[in-house]
Design a binder for these strands. Structure first.
Lengths: 214, 214
DNA sequence: ATATAAGTTGACCAATTGGTCAGGTTTTAT
DNA sequence: ATAAAACCTGACCAATTGGTCAACTTATAT
């Protein structure tokens, strides 16, 4: 049971890896996989390019690590809802969480969007199970409510798509929104937008909007 | 008034240009600007690479031409709505048109999405006026209804964003949807999804759903 | 008929860029 | 102290790829 030190990263490695991952998320979100240069990531992380390759053997490897990190975050945010909770409460909470995610981690959302527009080669290859499980879990909850007559909606899938679409739009299309409104949305405006989505979705399901989300 | 023939394209040129544009739309939608190789476009159009460069001087030029073509289509589809029409009718029609667009021209929608995620450098540079005018026109119509009390919604912008988001999602994220449902959505399913959006948006604005859109 | 423009294309080039490598320094466990 | 592992990085390379060029064929107007 001796602790083998071979191929174990030290403190420096862990810190630098995170530094690089953050820089890479920024660059991949803005330029896509092909459009991102390792040199740009290195510059942003203030490290030499060779150092980036030292920690992440290849560009693809780096991208996969970024995607992995995003998926972990993604899952953790929405894992709380269960089928025994009140639909109105859960949906409102769900939308609030998603919008919070769009506000604080827009770049993560954009990388996810780029991956899917690109045909999701990695999501349905490398992280297939992980991603599928996350989605199936959400569909299951809604379907349960429909079966029990707790919620009025024709199709669990379409409801989820509409929620995802509205919430992710504020991250993925923020350049368009900023341009249209003449300035970046601040937190107050994000909360207003969140209410507009909650209003839309809950009314659409003929649910009462909980007091604290009005 | 003599007809100067210098730099005028003949029939062959017009036909080939369109052939290349169609191929380019396909490739740009799938791989983004940086990820697309001129050779791939040429292969899809079944022409030598040099021939593509002959008609479109550079890759950027080709991309701009594709974007231009998409914007013309985009605008033409939504220019019909006016502020004097019935909001319920117009919104339902608007959503139907957008969903039809997502069904028949998903790649155009994806190029548009990629451009915006990328920060919309060309939309707010080259085609700034064109694009802004299209958006402002839509906002104006909604705002007019709000001012006249014809429609119950807090914010014209957010309403439009939510409509765009839901409809474009079915084009931009079709890879995810296809994966989730195990097969591509057919027209019947698209019509069902369209109804779910109309239901959501109109109920959200406290509008009656017109008979033919139920 | 023929001149002029439009269209075609293989050969080639220069720049970019992902990735390697070897020779170093620093950290860490004992 | 010292050995082993972890970390660092300048120099370099091979492959990709956007774009040029010159020689050629085809179409078209008069």
């Amino acid at each position: 049971m001796t602790d083998n030190k071979i191929n174990k990263e030290g403190r420096i490695g862990a810190a630098n890896k995170q530094l690089i991952l953050n820089a890479a998320e920024h660059e991949f979100a803005k330029h896509g996989f092909k459009g991102t240069r390792i040199q740009q990531v290195a510059d942003r992380a203030q490290l030499p390019k060779t150092n980036v390759l030292y920690y992440f053997k290849s560009k693809e490897n780096l991208y996969l690590a970024v995607l992995q990190q995003i998926l972990e975050l993604w899952n953790s945010v929405f894992d709380e809802a269960t089928k025994d909770d009140d639909p109105a409460e859960v949906l409102a909470r769900y939308i609030t969480d998603k919008m919070e995610f769009s506000l604080v981690r827009p770049e993560a959302s954009r990388i996810f969007a780029l991956e899917i527009i690109n045909g999701a080669p990695n999501l349905y290859g490398f992280y297939k199970e992980q991603h599928a499980a996350w989605m199936e879990g959400r569909v299951e909850v809604i379907q349960h409510w429909i079966d029990e007559g707790k919620i009025q909606t024709a199709n669990a899938h379409y409801l989820l798509y509409n929620i995802w679409a509205c919430c992710q739009h504020y991250a993925d299309f923020s350049a368009q929104i900023t341009h249209l409104q003449g300035k970046e949305m601040d937190r107050a405006e994000f909360e207003e937008a969140t209410k507009s989505i909650i209003n839309l979705i809950l009314k659409g399901c003929s649910l009462e909007i909980p007091e604290k989300y009005r």
